[in-house]
Structure formats: structure tokens, C-alpha cells
């Protein structure tokens, strides 16, 4: 097995384990946020094995850096009690959930591997800053500009929502 494949399986498993640790941790929200950091960094390594170098760098900057820091800020501001899972539903609902999950998993294992394409050869600059930048600014200029409006709306919305009183 080649080195990228080894790292893919290793850090893919790490991402799954820390994601489970995040979802199942009901005692401590800060620890859950830290598990989210581990998931994000593991996924950045997974992105590198998929030759997505620019996206891996942005994953660490934006997710593991900015987004989790915002989460930790909010956890610090709030006084969180111990969480519990939602009360268990009726037997029929649980059974329906199990049947649905098994059906989806079976369909996935049966159908998806046949439908997937074979992995093609890639050019040597695949996923580099220059190549992604060319695609972004040549073919996707309009979506790129529209995201700036989305960010502006999100900034204004966050300030309006979190402000105590609007004058």
C-alpha cells in the first residue's frame, strides 16, 4: 500500500473516532468542541491524500481555526448544563429506524461501488494554489462574487442577532 493510502485510512479512522467522541460526549461541551478540532485536522490530512492541497490548508485555517474558536467563545459565554440524549421513542419508531438504516446501508453497499468511475490520472499541479485559483477566477467568478454578499449578510445578521438592543 502506498503512503497516501496509509495516511487516508489512518486519519479517516481518526476522523470517525473523534466525530463519535463529539456526538456521544454529553458531559462536557468544551471537550466536544476539541473532538471537533481533531476531526477537522484529520480531515485536512485526508484532503491532502486526495491531492487537495489548497483545500486542506483552508480547512485548517477556517474550520480548525476560526469556526471552532467561535464555538468555544459561545460555550464560554453560556452556562451549559449536562446534556442528555432525547427521550427514547416508542418501539415501533425504533424498529422503523433500524429497518431504514439497514435498507440504506444495504443499498449503499450494493449499488454505489458499481456506479463509481475509475480513478483517473491527474496532472502534476492538480489541487495546487495556481490551478484552483485559475478555475475559481475563470469559470466560477460569479459564484465567487455572490459568496461575498452571503458573508456580508451573515456579518450583519450575526451582529443584529447578538446585539442586546438595537438603537
Amino acid at each position: 500500500m502506498s503512503a497516501p493510502a496509509v495516511f487516508f485510512y489512518l486519519f479517516g479512522a481518526a476522523a470517525v473516532v473523534s466525530a463519535l467522541a463529539m456526538v456521544l460526549n454529553v458531559r462536557n461541551t468544551v471537550a466536544a468542541a476539541m473532538s471537533l478540532v481533531v476531526t477537522m485536522i484529520s480531515l485536512a490530512v485526508v484532503y491532502v491524500t486526495l491531492e487537495a492541497h489548497l483545500v486542506a490548508a483552508l480547512q485548517i485555517l477556517v474550520y480548525a481555526g476560526a469556526i471552532v474558536v467561535v464555538f468555544l467563545f459561545v460555550v464560554m459565554l453560556l452556562n451549559l448544563r449536562r446534556d442528555t440524549f432525547a427521550p427514547s421513542r416508542q418501539l415501533l419508531t425504533k424498529g422503523a429506524g433500524v429497518v431504514l438504516a439497514l435498507g440504506v446501508a444495504g443499498a449503499f453497499l450494493q449499488l454505489v461501488p458499481q456506479a463509481l468511475p475509475t480513478v483517473q490520472e491527474i496532472p502534476p499541479d492538480f489541487g495546487s494554489y495556481a490551478a484552483v485559483g485559475r478555475t475559481l477566477y475563470r469559470d466560477f467568478v460569479l459564484p465567487f462574487e455572490v459568496t461575498s454578499f452571503l458573508l456580508l449578510a451573515a456579518i450583519v445578521g450575526a451582529v443584529v442577532l447578538a446585539k442586546r438592543r438595537l438603537d
Partner: peptide, 19 residues
């Protein structure tokens, strides 16, 4: 890759408004 950049922007906006 470009789609992933868009998703990251949407995720950041969603976290700001959601929190």
C-alpha cells in the same frame, strides 16, 4: 475543489448566524 470552497464559506456564515 471550488465547490468545497463555497461550502466552507456557507459553513462559516451558518456558524456566525447560528451562534
Amino acid at each position: 475543489h471550488v465547490m468545497v470552497l463555497m461550502v466552507i464559506v456557507v459553513a462559516a456564515a451558518e456558524v456566525a448566524v447560528g451562534l
